[in-house]
Each structure stands twice: as structure tokens, then as C-alpha cells.
């Protein structure tokens, strides 16, 4: 689900130190600030840029290892940017009972990617999720923040095409 962080010291994509600083500084007095801060950073940058870890560590009086530990514990936090759109496909029991995993696997095959990977044109990242709370209209998906129920092969293909900007 997560791509390994870049090991070189090149500036991460979209990095804006002042913006990161404003986010971290603005939230550091919040009770249990780490998760809200990581969510805000990911909202701003699309992922949690590597240099933000040290800044968070300093602001929260934690070690950088602890910050990395928090980021890696939670499935949501990315250490590299995702595609322009993210499709979460549910593979938990209720969706299994309606063939959800099959729809998901066939879509991944058509797109030529695996779970957590992004299409070559950068338009779509497909992620596995366990339950979206749409279990009475399974199989379910979430395309960015738009919920989709009773997903089938045709709808999944259509959504992926829409994400790619109308091109299949």
C-alpha cells in the first residue's frame, strides 16, 4: 500500500517548507496532535513529505523514529504521492458475498496494476479497503470521496476511464 520513501535528498514533489511549517505550528498545541497533523499534511501535499517528519518530531518533542512509526502504522498515510484520483475498493466479507474481490481483481488486471499501485498515466491509484459501511449495497467503492454501490465490471471500468479524463 505504501511506496518506500525516496532515499536521496532531492526536494520531494510539491514540497513547500513554509506551508508545512504553518500546518505543524498551527496544530502543535492540539491534544494528541500527531494524527490531525498528518491528515492536514496529507491533505495539503497529497502525501506526507519526508522533510515534514523532522519538523513534526521537533514540534511534538518526539524522535523522528517515533513519527516514522506513527506514519507506517496507519494504512492511510502515504510516503509518496498517489495518482490524481484514488479508488478504494472494498474486499471485506459483505462485499465478498457479492463478488467484490473478483470485480477488483479484474479491474486491476485491465489497468495492468497491482493493489496500491498507480496507472502509468498517473490518473488513478487503486487501494484495497476493508469496509466502507456500504454493506447493504455491496460491492462498494469510494472514488476520491464519491461512494459507489453495487459495483460491477462495467461501472468499475467506466469510473477508471472517467478518472483518466474520458480516455480508456
Amino acid at each position: 500500500m505504501q511506496t518506500a520513501p525516496a532515499t536521496n535528498e532531492a526536494t520531494p514533489p510539491g514540497w513547500d517548507k513554509a506551508r508545512a511549517h504553518a500546518i505543524i505550528d498551527g496544530m502543535k498545541a492540539t491534544e494528541g496532535a500527531a494524527l490531525p497533523m498528518l491528515h492536514a499534511l496529507q491533505e495539503a501535499f497529497g502525501y506526507v513529505p519526508h522533510p515534514a517528519e523532522a519538523m513534526m518530531a521537533e514540534a511534538l518533542n518526539l524522535s523522528r523514529a517515533e513519527i516514522r512509526g506513527i506514519i507506517s502504522f496507519y494504512h492511510d498515510f502515504r510516503q509518496a504521492p498517489a495518482g490524481r484520483h484514488v479508488m478504494k475498493l472494498c474486499v471485506a466479507e459483505a462485499c465478498q458475498s457479492m463478488g467484490g474481490p473478483g470485480v477488483a481483481e479484474r479491474l486491476l488486471t485491465r489497468l495492468g496494476i497491482g493493489w496500491g499501485e498507480t496507472t502509468t498515466d498517473g490518473s488513478l491509484t487503486v487501494e484495497k479497503v476493508y469496509c466502507l459501511g456500504l454493506c447493504a449495497c455491496a460491492p462498494a467503492a469510494l472514488l476520491d470521496d464519491v461512494p459507489v454501490g453495487r459495483l460491477d465490471d462495467d461501472t468499475a471500468t467506466l469510473l477508471a476511464a472517467e478518472a483518466a479524463g474520458g480516455m480508456t
Binding site: A92, E93, A94, Y130, C131, G133
Partner: peptide, 11 residues
Amino acid sequence: DEGDSGTFADR
């Protein structure tokens, strides 16, 4: 944190 598949009452 309603994570159980098949549940959506909290949501």
C-alpha cells in the same frame, strides 16, 4: 471506528 464489515449503523 466502525470497522466491522456488514455494519453501518454508526455511520
